[in-house]
Computed example of a mutant assay.
Amino acid sequence: MVEFFRLIKAKDVVYECGPGCSCGSKCINRVSQHGLKFQLEVYRTKVKGWAVRSWDLIPAGAPVCEYTGLLRRNAEMDSVHDNDYIFDIDCLHTMHGIDGREKREGDVPVTSGTPEQVDATLRESDTEFCIDAGSCGNVTRFINHSCEPNLFVQCILSSHHDLRLARIVLFAADDIDPMTELTYDYAYRLGSVTDEDGNVKELECHCGTSECRGRLY
């Protein structure tokens, strides 16, 4: 039987025990640190390219997989336009509900100033770091977007407390039946993706859900 701990509801950020803690691997505060517990399969779809599903039932709140790749500064990626496997580490923006992100519960002091000053600062700044899974990564990079997803993205800190370098882990938002496609919300802001000439790119969304917004970006 698969054993794991669960995160019932998405938080702004989760602090887990790290290498400096005296607890062992069975500590309940190491939810995301036990590796893959489900048999995940990459398969081909008709309209969305590659996709991922699980052969096993995934209970709500279970950690599914971590988005891995090369840690890069976003400034390094300004000239890269054909890499679809870049994940911005945008924990600060998510915590404050910036650029259309859904603000989550939490009580983590991250910067000084009034809420208005914090929001203005974040709106004027892009995320500093990203995870580039274009040349190396794991199965997570093939998980598709959905406007009504069955996974949620969670920022996790364990070996350090730098929000700019948080780990990105996907958790099950609901019970997920075997052979169901796994999806999460990419949370693109419309008009935020451009080509090498600076022209805004548009991509139709094919998630097919009742909440579909029509465009991915």
Results as ranks from 00 to 15, higher is better:
R104N: 06
A75R: 13
P115M: 05
E105D: 10
F129K: 02
P109W: 06
E148A: 13
Y188M: 08
K37A: 06
A172K: 03
E3D: 15
K48P: 04
A172S: 14
V110R: 01
N150E: 04
L203G: 14
C147E: 03
S112V: 14
T121M: 12
L40W: 08
K103I: 14
S25M: 07
S135K: 06
V31F: 02
K201E: 15
E124F: 01
I156F: 11
L163R: 01
D126A: 14
E181L: 03
P19H: 11
E148R: 09
D162R: 08
D82Y: 09
C130L: 05
L165T: 15
T127K: 01
C17Y: 09
C27S: 04
A51Y: 08
T121G: 00
H96V: 00
V13T: 08
P63M: 05
G208K: 07
E102V: 15
C130H: 02
T127F: 10
Y15L: 15
R101C: 02
E204D: 13
H34D: 05
R164M: 05
A75M: 09
N150R: 10
V139D: 05
E204L: 14
R101L: 15
L70Y: 04
S135P: 00
E196N: 11
E116N: 14
C21W: 13
G198P: 04
R6P: 00
A51H: 02
P59V: 06
P59C: 04
T140W: 00
Y15G: 10
S54P: 02
S135D: 11
G24I: 03
S125P: 00
G191C: 09
K37E: 09
D99Q: 03
L7M: 08
R73Q: 13
R73I: 02
R30C: 12
S158V: 00
R30M: 08
L165Y: 03
V118M: 12
M1H: 05
I176T: 13
I131L: 07
L92S: 04
R104K: 15
D174V: 13
F38G: 03
Q117R: 10
S159L: 06
I8R: 15
H145P: 10
Y188I: 06
G97Y: 05
F87R: 04
R73P: 00
L151F: 02
E76I: 11
L170N: 02
V42Q: 05
S210W: 10
Y67V: 05
L157M: 09
Y43C: 02
C207P: 00
A172D: 03
S192M: 03
E128L: 13
H93G: 02
